[in-house]
Design a protein around this nucleic acid. Structure first.
Lengths: 141, 141
DNA sequence: TTACTTAGTTAGTCAAACTAATTTTTTGGT
DNA sequence: ACCAAAAAATTAGTTTGACTAACTAAGTAA
């Protein structure tokens, strides 16, 4: 069943990851906010308020790209920008109540969708997936 | 270590998959061909010559989008378009020798990059990842 | 044959990525 | 204390890949 060849393992994970992301994306589309914006919002939600630079780094995009994404999110009332008190060049970007509500909704939607899939699995299989995720996180940077 | 809560498992896999894809993308960028084009080329390489419609369906984009991607690939000499003999509305798109060479190069590059990561793992951990990939494929779609 | 369906193309729009140039502020060296 | 260099954001402009809508050409069926 299990291939030991690294390339086979990598390819299998690659394909599986793409499929998984496709499934999740459906739920995300329903929020009316694009994937890059949702992702940035997620970093802010779970990582706490932070500068544009650190957000850009977390999302692996340029500062310019993130500047636009955050401006859009601000225009939609999902985040708020404030000048950093200690460094007036810098921003402190934080999630608004509305932004938090949207994330929570999204979380529920995603859960509903994934529950249908994951519910098919046994306790052991779920544990296997959790372990695999942990391994992947450890090796991927 | 292993969380049993479906949402936790799903989120962990989601994040892990994103990271994995990011890593692979770096290798793909070196080919000088964009990810969507590489992906279409991959479908043609492994799935054999096929129509624009079936390619579009495989890649989950519209016909119009795929039409442009394939035209670009053709301009770069990576695929060839021929009118279907049996249905002159249809195309038969196939990978050229140049296209196949590029895929092979890409495969090597990706292998080199992923080997570094996967080599850190034990035999058992690799098997775990392979099993997880199999489970993911089974439940996603 | 006339009407419908299917395959693909083209035009036009939009979002998100990039680079380059600019402003504002902070920091370091002399 | 000053001035140069670095850092944080923004803005302008480009490219790519996605979409829809409108089209042509070819096959199918009433």
């Amino acid at each position: 069943m299990a291939r030991r060849d690294p390339l086979e393992v990598a390819n299998a994970l690659h394909r599986a990851a793409i499929r998984l992301l496709r499934t999740v994306r459906v739920a995300d589309n329903e929020t009316g906010v694009s994937a890059p914006k949702l992702s940035a919002l997620s970093v802010l939600t779970f990582g706490g308020p932070q500068s544009l630079t650190s957000l850009a780094r977390a999302e692996q995009v340029t500062l310019a790209t993130m500047s636009k994404l955050v401006s859009d999110l601000e225009a939609e009332g999902l985040v708020a920008k404030r000048v950093d008190r200690e460094d007036k060049r810098g921003l402190r970007i934080e999630v608004t109540a509305k932004g938090r509500a949207l994330m929570e909704e999204g979380r529920k939607r995603r859960l509903a969708r994934l529950n249908k899939l994951i519910a098919k699995l046994s306790r052991e299989e779920r544990a296997q997936l959790a372990d695999a995720a942990e391994i992947m996180m450890r090796i991927a940077e």
